[in-house]
């Protein structure tokens, strides 16, 4: 699996160094306290790392007909998919891990730190699941076609904050409290293993889809 992973690892390293640098710079700017802006940007950066690196790699595979090349080597379709999924897991783990450590080093109140850590873990889990779904989409439709779907999806997501603001107009404190309670209430001992199981299932589905598409 490492043989395939290391082909793609450069892109992940590039984006990881980029994101990690931004996080550290952000931390230096925002100071020792965890601010809402820092939290939100950190979450977006986890997204950026996963999506940018995955899509860059898949664009590269499509451009070079990389899967056609790999299919001539002694490696199974499942091993190729496993390598892709393992790399995303590693990237998310490292990025979320870095943020969790940074948050724990801050001078904020322990409850704030716990919520911030819970938030980035949540973002990590969402990224993992979305990355899994992305791979299924890419293997089913091809990178270029899937990109059109994702583009439309992101466009639709742009309306979500507007809808939320409209829905909770005049009740922003209530919304904030609800969100904070949500993050504080997540049982990570249950959610992380469950997310990994879902991710594993998505990987199996992606491998199956890739195998069927090659037929």
């Amino acid at each position: 699996m490492w043989k395939i992973m290391k082909k793609n690892v450069n892109v992940f390293v590039f984006y990881f160094v980029f994101v990690a640098s931004l996080i550290v710079i952000l931390k230096l700017i925002t100071g020792n306290e965890i601010t809402t802006a820092f939290m939100i940007i950190a979450g977006i950066l986890v997204f950026l790392l996963v999506f940018a690196s995955t899509f860059t790699n898949e664009q590269y595979e499509e451009k070079n007909k990389g899967y056609a090349f790999l299919d001539t080597l002694p490696v199974t379709a499942r091993e190729i998919v496993e390598a892709k999924f393992a790399l995303v897991l590693l990237a998310v783990g490292l990025c979320v891990g870095l943020l969790v450590i940074l948050f724990s080093l801050s001078a904020s109140a322990p409850e704030t730190i716990a919520i911030a850590q819970s938030y980035v873990l949540f973002m990590g889990v969402v990224c993992l699941i979305l990355a899994g779904v992305n791979y299924i989409g890419i293997f089913a439709l091809g990178y270029t076609k899937f990109l059109i779907f994702v583009g439309s999806g992101w466009l639709a997501l742009g309306f979500v904050p507007v809808i939320i603001m409209k829905t909770y107009q005049g009740r922003m404190d209530y919304l904030k409290e609800t969100v904070l309670n949500f993050y504080a209430g997540i049982d990570w001992l249950v959610v992380i293993p469950s997310a990994l199981v879902v991710y594993f299932v998505l990987m199996l589905v992606a491998a199956k889809v890739r195998h069927l598409k090659s037929a």
């Binding site: 082909k7 070079n64 007909k65 056609a68 001539t72 080597l73 002694p74 490696v75």
Partner: peptide, 21 residues
């Protein structure tokens, strides 16, 4: 046994795909 088989087969396809860069 596809891994085992490909290990013992030399394959040249009608089109050659490599990582171009």
């Amino acid at each position: 046994n596809i891994k085992h088989v490909r290990n013992r087969v030399g394959y040249v396809g009608e089109e050659q795909h490599f990582y171009g860069d």
